[in-house]
Amino acid sequence: MDLQYFFELFVGGLTKGSIYALIALGYTMVYGIIKLINFAHGEIYMIGAFTALIIASALSFTGMNPVLIFLISTILAIIFSASYGVTMEKIAYKPLRGSQRLSGLISAIGMSMFLQNYVLLAQTSDFLPFPNLIPEFKFLEPVKSLISPSGFIILVTTAIVMILLTYLIKFTKTGKAMRATSQDPKMSQLLGINISKVITMTFIIGSSTAALGGVLISTHIGQLNFYIGFITGIKAFVAAVLGGIGSIPGAVLGSFVLAWTESFGTGYISSDYEDVFAFLFLIIILIFRPSGILGRPENKKV
């Protein structure tokens, strides 16, 4: 077996898994709190990437320092995506609270269609190039064939985000309120937790990490269009379910497992069936563990 090839696939999976993880977090957190599959989450990721592209391109025409542009556009993309996420929740999900689960899902599907077409109409259906803003890193020289500078940034950023998020969920007041709400929303409310605030926070965090993922992958690949959110969104969702939806470590684990499955599947078997590997793997896992890898089995309360 060619070890070099193996490591290439491994690192490729790691980068991809990081992006999935950044998006899957949003799915799993929203699901944990309001039990809704936020189908439009992939569009938030796309809007994040698109906003960054617009701002970065506009700034790059002025000849600003690329690293500075990268930082500004990333931060703005996060702010805007978070705002989209919150607005979306207020319009499409909040009025539906307490109604059937299916209604929320349909509303999310509608939102997804709407946002996709909104970007399509306001901007373009063509692929746009993302300006190259990442500098070369000297210390990556020895492993150049394995990992690109943008890939390196993805790994580092994801690691930092994960650590911050773990801290936030585990040790801050907001994090505690979130965990309590996902356990038992009614009880949390009785104990004085402001559910609406918790939900808003969840959407802010989820949308921000998704936007970050969007910006990072766009710099990595170098181009994007209005449709990128759809399939990546579904994949991230698969990752969240795979890990056990509602569980944050599960989403991260699921993302890497999924990305490696795809990476090795396409690398060693056939590149045509990338998505088939993902879904077949999901189906097989769920047959044996109906609540995902780290998910808690659903209690049969009688």
Binding site: A92, S103, G110, M111, M113, F114, Q116
Partner: peptide
């Protein structure tokens, strides 16, 4: 498609 998406949301709300 834009109108259609919006309709789904409005309908559900």
């Amino acid at each position: 498609m834009l109108i259609f998406g919006a309709m789904l949301v409005i309908m559900m709300v």
